[in-house]
Simulated scan of single mutants.
Amino acid sequence: MSDTSGVNLHVILWPIQEWPAMGETWRRAEQLGFAGAWVYDHLAWRGHTPWDDAYASLAAAAALTERIRLGTLVTSPNFRTPIPTASAARTIDRISGGRLTLGIGAGGSGHTSDGDVLDRDWTPRERADRFAEWVEQLDALMTTAPVSLEGEHWTARDVSIAAGMVQRRPPYWIAGNGPRGMRLAARLGQGWIANPQGEDHYADTVARLEALERACEAEGRAAGDLARMLMTGFGDEPWLASVGAFEDLAGRYGELGITDIAVHWPRPGTDWEADMGVFEEIAAHVNGV
């Protein structure tokens, strides 16, 4: 088996359970020792309804847990404007005692995400332009008070949101696959999120990490300053088949420079179905609980 002692294990939860059962899942994630528990930020996802709001879910989870970090994977500028997003993030930061991490991405399109709901499909350039402005405005709103901002897409006048935060601002883990997104992660992020594409996720991750290295170099920053999280569960790699399978895969990706790995909470009858006993065994093995 490969050495995974330096890799942090996170879990992605599904905001679809009835409450209070959903609250018990958040508590169980903390009991299993995960470094972070994350939730997708969508209005709907792959046709599943009801799909609870990510920020409302995190606020509830913040009140129910004590140690685990909480985050969005990823906050979407498709339907969230900077001012209310910053305000909600500050509130969760305060409720959680400084345990919020903001995963941020440019947002998707089509039926798998929110494109059909919003009835708007931006071009890649439009999406990148909006994303860059959104991240920069959010950064200003959460670090300066009062602040006024004038952008192509959003404007703010004498807004004071930064005051009262537990963290200077929540860490930004940015999901940027293209050159501009990676430069944004290198400039403003504390972490970067890899969501491999294609048939060979390992080769794709190698290429993306090399591109991240170049982006960091262009920004005068060491890539090692960023946490680098790998999302799993969208390919054929058997992450949750056994402790041994997880160890082998995590070790291979850890050797590339991946510092954090996110697995999905088992969801019966879907592509993310897994044996709950094996899932808990892996968590216990990696997290030392």
Rank of each mutant, 00 (worst) to 15 (best):
A227V: 15
V135T: 07
G98D: 14
T75F: 03
E213N: 14
G6H: 12
Y40G: 05
H264M: 11
L141I: 01
A207S: 13
T112Q: 13
R80K: 05
G98K: 01
G23W: 04
E30A: 04
D3T: 08
R94A: 11
T270Y: 11
T101K: 05
M276C: 08
R252M: 11
S87H: 11
N287W: 06
P268D: 10
E247I: 02
E30I: 00
G224N: 13
L138F: 06
A140V: 00
S148M: 05
P124F: 08
N8T: 14
S96E: 07
M276T: 00
T49D: 13
L13G: 01
E219D: 12
S57R: 07
A186G: 02
F246G: 04
W239N: 02
W265T: 01
G244P: 12
V135P: 14
A106V: 02
P15N: 04
G151T: 03
A283R: 08
M182A: 06
H42R: 10
G189Q: 05
G220Y: 13
D158W: 04
W173V: 06
V135H: 08
D236A: 10
D139E: 14
G288S: 07
W122I: 02
L184T: 05
W45P: 09
L149G: 00
S57A: 12
T123H: 11
I83L: 13
F79Q: 02
Y40V: 15
E199H: 10
G23H: 03
S57F: 10
A61L: 06
A140T: 02
L64S: 10
L118N: 02
T81M: 15
A88E: 01
W272Y: 11
G189D: 01
I83A: 11
A128L: 06
G235L: 13
W192E: 03
W239L: 04
L118D: 00
P50T: 00
P268A: 12
T85P: 01
G224C: 10
Q167D: 06
M276I: 05
L240G: 11
A106L: 01
G277K: 15
L230R: 01
R187D: 05
N78W: 09
Q190C: 09
R80I: 12
F234E: 03
W45Q: 15
A227R: 09
P82R: 03
F131E: 02
F246P: 00
S96T: 09
R180G: 10
I104N: 03
D52H: 14
G233N: 03
D114E: 02
V135Y: 08
H10F: 07
A194Q: 05
I83S: 08
A60C: 12
A62S: 09
E136N: 10
A140R: 00
S96P: 04
I12V: 11
H153N: 08
I16Y: 00
Y172C: 10
A162W: 02
H111Q: 13
D41W: 07
R127M: 07
R120T: 13
L188H: 08
A140H: 00
R214W: 14
F131C: 09
